[in-house]
Write a protein that binds this DNA or RNA. Structure first.
Length: 513
RNA sequence: GGCGCGUUGGAGAAGCGGCUUAACUCACCAGCCUUUCACGCUGGCAUCCACGGGUUCGAAUCCCGUACGCGUCACCA
């Protein structure tokens, strides 16, 4: 794949990858890395590859790989090559590419870069301990670097399986241009010989990434800052193999409110958690992109298309960013408010089901039309006061049923007020006489709930007139009497959604207190 | 401890040597709107850019040190 540049020369189009290890759910930091890769590549017609780094046989699990791909898909991050979609460089699971690594390993061995290391875990630990006690950097001592054939044979006879180390040769500092942080240099003499192949024949991360990036023709590596110190090892391998490494871009970490790197162990850090809480994918995406990147203009709420258009690595911040739940909530409420009734209602369905309503239905299509309308009006009634879809669940009891869950103390006080009883009794008579306040069971044509709300409104106005009361004097007793609360969504909507029968039942109970 | 990276208000940040009396957003505070709450609207919130020095006519912006924070030093990725 390629295209022509201004001078008519052939340029490689951008190829990036997101390469998670399937040892857990997709977390916020990973999602942001994936997002930056996605925006960077697709914004310029490039390609995003999804690859699974499952060389840690003990911890990797296929179900994690699946859930990571699902989470990316949910966010709207799509990839052009890799897991699930295939591509020229298949397979895209490192565990299935072992023969490829072996081939490159042989090449390195032929060049004299590889040696067997028989040190046990305990020995290595002791060596590190020793080094650090002497105030030196804990790198490999090189103990096995020059074992004789007999020594090696002896170890093998003892049944010790060697790991393979990369021999770091002395030389000039390793310099590379990081697209985010500028020129970064490491002294190669400070890097100890590192393992590239474990004793079980599986390559380590540092070796496998290089081979995969090489084979998959990756042009840019956009990844978290925690990988910065791995870069020199990888550079060494690129150099030994005689290939030009990709462009690197190390993006800063996402910190928790304590200022520490957000880790999987923090709890609420998986994308799945936010999905389950009722955050919209657009909101999560929009929030994440603003962590470490900023748009040129004042506009912060941006669509995916706008992000693709505007994103650039040059505007990625070097400093780490703190994850701020308040801002995420704000973003989410913006996106919730931008949805219209039915549309929102459909998104809300799983959450109201979790709260017990329509729990037996399998899907939105499985609802009857009057139920759908009820939910749509419900959605409109609550959308301005919920920050997550999940919060809608707690409003259901307010809009349904003959029971009032509980009375706030303030509400009781209002109901003890001078005119409260008069207002409620008069209102009860009006509702009894009115045919228009439908309830869900009786609803038969769309839009009926809206007119019921309108009817409720005029009814309340009329009530005020009849009694010669105004404003709060009529509305507060009504609200308190019907909901038990002092604050809440518009009363007319509550009344419409409740329906005649439940309103009367509630008034009855309140009046009998 | 070695190596690496970072430091603009509570959080995200703009700023790239004079246009800055440091944008914008969230949070927070006050007021308005509203039958309540919420939404929305208006205003407030860093005399200053971690600190110290230097370069310059001029620095948050360039250089040097110090402090602090974070990352990383695995046969984990």
């Amino acid at each position: 794949m390629g295209r022509t540049n201004d001078q008519g020369g052939f340029v490689m189009s951008v190829r990036v990858r997101f390469a998670p290890s399937p040892t857990g759910l997709l977390h916020i930091g990973g999602a942001r890395s994936a997002l930056f890769n996605y925006l960077f590549a697709t914004g310029q017609g490039g390609c995003l590859i999804l690859r699974s780094e499952d060389t840690d046989l003990a911890r990797s699990r296929l179900e994690y790989e699946e859930s990571i791909a699902d989470a990316l898909f949910w966010l709207g991050i799509t990839w052009q090559e890799g897991l699930r979609v295939g591509g020229e460089s298949a397979p895209y699971r490192q565990s299935e590419r072992l023969d490829i690594y072996r081939r490159y390993l042989e090449k390195l061995a032929g060049l004299g870069y590889v040696y067997e290391c028989f040190c046990s875990e305990e020995e290595l630990e002791a060596q590190r301990q020793d080094l650090s006690e002497r105030g030196e950097s804990p790198r490999y001592s090189g103990r096995c670097a020059s074992l004789s054939e007999q020594e090696k044979a002896l170890k093998r006879d003892q049944g010790i399986k060697p790991a393979l180390r990369f021999r770091v040769r002395p030389g000039a500092p390793l310099l590379f241009a990081d697209a985010v942080r500028g020129t970064i240099g490491f002294d190669r003499n400070g890097i100890g010989d590192f393992i590239i192949m474990k004793s079980d024949g599986v390559p380590t991360y540092n070796f496998a990434v290089v081979i995969d990036d090489l084979e998959m023709k990756v042009t840019h590596v956009v990844r978290g800052e925690e990988h910065l110190s791995n870069t020199p090892c990888q550079l060494l391998i690129w150099e030994a193999l005689g290939f030009t490494p990709p462009q690197y871009a190390h993006i800063s970490l996402i910190l928790n409110s304590e200022g520490k790197k957000m880790s999987k162990r923090d709890g609420d850090t998986s994308v799945a958690y936010y999905r389950d809480q009722g955050y919209l994918p657009e909101a999560v995406l929009n929030f994440l992109v603003l962590l470490g990147w900023s748009p040129t203009g004042d506009q912060e709420i941006l669509t995916l298309a706008e992000l693709k258009e505007q994103f650039s690595l040059a505007r990625v911040s070097k400093a780490p960013a703190v994850f701020d739940r308040d801002k995420l909530d704000y973003m989410n409420s913006c996106y919730i408010r931008s949805r219209k009734g039915e549309e929102l209602a459909e998104l809300l369905l799983p959450f109201v089901q979790r709260a017990g309503l329509f729990a037996d239905r399998t899907s939105w299509a499985g609802l009857e039309s009057r139920e759908r309308e009820w939910l749509a009006v419900f959605a409109e009634a609550v959308k301005e006061r919920i920050k997550t879809l999940g919060e809608a669940g707690q409003y259901i009891d307010l809009f349904r049923g003959a029971e009032i869950r509980s009375f706030e103390e303030e509400a009781r006080e209002v109901l003890r007020g001078a005119n409260a009883r008069v207002v409620l009794e008069a209102f009860r008579r009006m509702v009894e006489a009115a045919p228009a306040l439908n309830q869900m069971g009786e609803l038969n044509q769309m839009g009926e709930l809206d007119s019921a709300a309108a009817a409720a409104k005029t009814m309340m106005k009329q009530l005020g007139k009849d009694l010669g009361l105004k404003g709060k004097d009529v509305f507060m007793p009504l609200r308190a009497g019907v909901t038990g609360q002092m604050h809440g969504p518009d009363l007319d909507k509550i009344l419409a959604l409740l329906g005649k029968e439940d309103i009367l039942a509630r008034l009855e109970k309140t009046l009998s207190l």
